[in-house]
Each structure stands twice: as C-alpha cells, then as structure tokens.
C-alpha cells in the first residue's frame, strides 16, 4: 500500500473518493470471501485497478457503481483461487441440515418455536441500523458455502446458472443451498433483531 501512495498524490480527490467507499467495498468482499485478509486484498486490487483505469470510466453509471463492478471480478477471481487451493468445504453436500430439520415437524408444518413472527414494516427494517448489524452477524454465522452462494446470488446478483458454472455445482443443488441459507438467515435475524427491538 505504501509503495503505491506516491502515484495517488497527483489525484488527491480521486483517492479520497475511493477511500470513502472502501469500508463498503471491504464488507461486501468479506461477505463473499469469509476472510478479512483476502477481502482487504481484493479491495486493494480493485482500488488500484480503478485508479489505473479511471480514464476509461464512461460515466454511464455512478463512479462507485463502476468500482463495485471492478471489485466483483476481483472477488470472483479470489473465490476461484480459494476453491482451487482447497479452502472450501465440499460443495455437493446433499446431507440433511439439522438446523433446518429442527424448524419443521415431521408432518412438514413449522415447529412451534420456529414459526415466523411478524417483523413489522419491511421498509423500516432496511433503514434500521439494528437490522443491518443483525444481518451482518447472521451472515457471518452462516456456514461458509451457504453464505458464499447466498452472496453470489443476492448481493452480487448472479443467476443460479452462472453460480453453478462458476463454482461447479448442479443448479438444483444451488437452489437447495439457497433455500437453506434463506431459512437460516430468516430465523437468525428474527432471533437477534426482534429481541433487541422489543428490548429497546
């Protein structure tokens, strides 16, 4: 990082603008990569690329959107590397998920303790700081593979067809994992967030 500092001095405003968006880039990368060092590296890489290629920024989208676009490619590269280096659990995991099993009774109905409660106005939730803290904590608590696939689908917006091509699983398996991720997130957010809401 220090080595690249002098190059930035000729465009201080640009550097400040990129620094301002860095925390959001890091949290976005972290949700996909599940490793702070690798997330910081991917962001650093994306910021350097953005500095170098600022001249080619066309201005059709916002500058921050453009930088996020660069980061997405860096994240996908890093995920491929993680997978190649055996840092992922096996993906074709068709085994039962005990946490999900406990949410339902034998007959397929909700278990009494897992029945979804009302969350109030959804629009308010997204403006609520406590919601986002809980969301983050629940994402961190998800099993790595579920979190990666959920992030690729819902945060990065890849189709499940692209995801299965990208990480080499069957699309049906992808749907199963997304279903599990959503059920776990729903349950975790409800436990964490509603408790803090009613307590305050």
């Amino acid at each position: 990082m220090n080595q690249s500092q002098p190059r930035f001095r000729d465009d201080e405003t640009l550097r400040q603008r990129l620094e301002a968006v860095r925390p959001r880039l890091v949290s976005f990368a972290l949700l996909h990569l599940r490793d702070r060092c690798q997330a910081e590296d991917a962001v650093q890489d994306a910021l350097l690329t953005a500095m170098e290629k600022t001249a080619s920024f066309q201005g059709h989208s916002g500058y921050e959107t453009w930088v996020f676009g660069i980061l997405k490619y860096k994240i996908l590269d890093a995920m491929r590397a993680q997978k190649k280096h055996g840092q992922w659990q096996p993906l074709e995991d068709e085994s039962d998920d005990d946490a999900i099993d406990r949410m339902f009774q034998q007959n397929g109905h909700w278990s009494p303790q897992a029945r979804p409660a009302a969350w109030g106005d959804p629009d308010l939730s997204l403006d609520n700081q406590a919601f986002w803290q809980t969301f983050d904590a629940c994402m961190i608590g998800l099993p790595d593979n579920l979190a990666r696939i959920f992030s690729l689908r819902e945060l990065m917006g890849l189709s499940t067809a692209d995801i299965c091509q990208e990480i080499g699983i069957k699309e049906s398996n992808c749907w199963v994992m997304l279903h599990r991720a959503r059920l776990r997130l729903r349950s975790c957010i409800e436990k964490g967030w509603l408790t803090t809401e009613t307590a305050s």
Partner: peptide
C-alpha cells in the same frame, strides 16, 4: 421475510 432478504442483498451495491 424472504422478499426482504432479497431487497437487503441489493442494498450493498450502489445503483
């Protein structure tokens, strides 16, 4: 709540 999770995911990226 699944709808909300979907919209929450879109909040991370600008635009």
């Amino acid at each position: 709540q699944f709808e909300l999770l979907h919209r929450a995911g879109q909040h991370f990226t600008p635009g």
